[in-house]
Amino acid sequence: MPLEDQLLVERSKKGDREAFEHLVGIYEQKVYTIAYRLMGNHADAADLAQDAFIKIYQALPNFRGDSSFSTWIYHITVNVCRDELRKRQRRPTVSLDDNNGDGNNYTYEIRSTAPGPEEMLDRSETQVMIQQCLDSLNDDYRTILIMREIQELAYEEIAEILGCSLGTVKSRLSRARQALKEKISKQMEPLSPCKRLAK
């Protein structure tokens, strides 16, 4: 861990708010990017990146430095997002706030794969397409792709975080990449013959 990070972590552990804010400043882009790539929209990314930092802040006294600080916080970020994705799998996600007539109000959420206006503004055509392809993958595939290609974690680290074997990491990653390739090819097909990556 860089000396600067180490000092900031030590000061943060002692309740130094300024030091923690400094740490947030160093890591917020990476944490936000991971959340954004996993969730596919800015609204969720902002919420979950904040939730991740709050968890990091609360867990800091227990951080012993067994892994690097960056690995530790990215691990927490991925877990926060995975928890949210699991929650959404367990509940309906079809409409807005709704009164179903039985006196109970249920809050549902929409998870649209279409980019919102803010997404359209700040991303290039290819990036929009890649993010849409990522969004359309199942959560397991998307997560492992982000861990490997964006977080650049080793197979061993991914296995540890996901709690699975190296063989599972290898095969799941292979299937996820294949799935992504097919999605990208499909996205390109209607636009131009040359955009096909694979027939």
Partner: peptide, 9 residues
């Protein structure tokens, strides 16, 4: 995928 840029909060 690797070339996707960092996204600023």
């Amino acid at each position: 995928l690797k070339e996707l840029p960092l996204v600023a909060p």
